[in-house]
Design a protein around this nucleic acid. Structure first.
Lengths: 147, 147
DNA sequence: GGTAGTAGGCACCTAGAGGTGCGTAACGCA
DNA sequence: TGCGTTACGCACCTCTAGGTGCCTACTACC
């Protein structure tokens, strides 16, 4: 049939939209920071070593060793830490430095780019700390109303 | 043995850290906006109907119908659109209004809370548009160097 | 000699996000 | 009479992010 059905047109539009999304810079960034550990690593590298995710404001950028990060982000598996660090290094957000001591020592450090990203993310963090209580309250009343 | 091994201590720390993460407001927010369609819906409800994800700056908040959203976000499945809208409604970020016309009409609209969140997110978007080229360049040279 | 640390690589496995497809009930349109 | 629309619900299926466990060499401590 020469007449394109509505369904066909929709499929077409969907394909185009997916392609658009795939090369959208905002989407790419989002995919990256949505990874469970990227933000934690960023925050850790910027922190003073405190365990609090929320306490990353005071310290200045700091270089950290692999094992140090592993202890600080106590929940991370070795695999995921390595993977996350590699990914961040690839994107130029952190630098990796190998020091050939007796047991090799590797330190990671935020680049300026990584630092600026972290600044932007802190905007979101601020929103979360200000409004998340409201959100949770809404969620509770909604659930109550339904149940 | 009464002596807790290092491995046990690590497991303990991991459990605590996971518990901490689970109730961290920033993390909760992140989990929400990491969902593939939430930000798109937010942007759509704020936009003037343009197809460009990046062109959501001009318009003012606007109410939209289910089918309208479905067409605008051409890639979304009906299931995911419904799910996303429910989730946003639950969190008080959008409102759902049912108009009992002949085929029921449902409109969605941003709340002030949703609007403020979108503002914060636009900070990230700005970063992406400014720096994503650098990131991609870094990525390319990194891949080149390795391969 | 047994246990711990340093910085990972490799392979397997699971849980959950997200996609596909089908059905609804009432109506319009050709 | 048969397809299209409106706004979903439900069941099944896939794909992959992330977790777990086991391996490396070399060293240091007890």
């Amino acid at each position: 049939m020469a007449t394109t059905t509505a369904a066909q047109k929709r499929a077409q539009a969907r394909a185009e939209y997916d392609a658009f999304l795939a090369q959208c810079p905002s989407r790419k960034l989002l995919d990256q920071i949505a990874n469970k550990w990227v933000i934690l690593v960023l925050a850790a590298l910027r922190s003073d070593g405190s365990h609090q995710f929320g306490a990353d404001c005071a310290g200045e950028p700091r270089s950290m060793r692999y094992s140090e990060l592993s202890r600080l982000l106590a929940g991370v598996s070795q695999k995921m830490l390595t993977q996350t660090l590699r990914s961040l290094e690839r994107d130029g957000l952190i630098t990796r430095t190998v020091v050939p001591t007796v047991p090799v020592t590797v330190t990671y450090e935020l680049t300026d780019l990584g630092l600026s990203l972290h600044q932007s993310i802190r905007g979101l963090k601020a929103w979360a700390e200000m409004h998340m209580d409201d959100v949770l309250a809404n969620r509770a009343t909604y659930d109550n109303h339904v149940a």
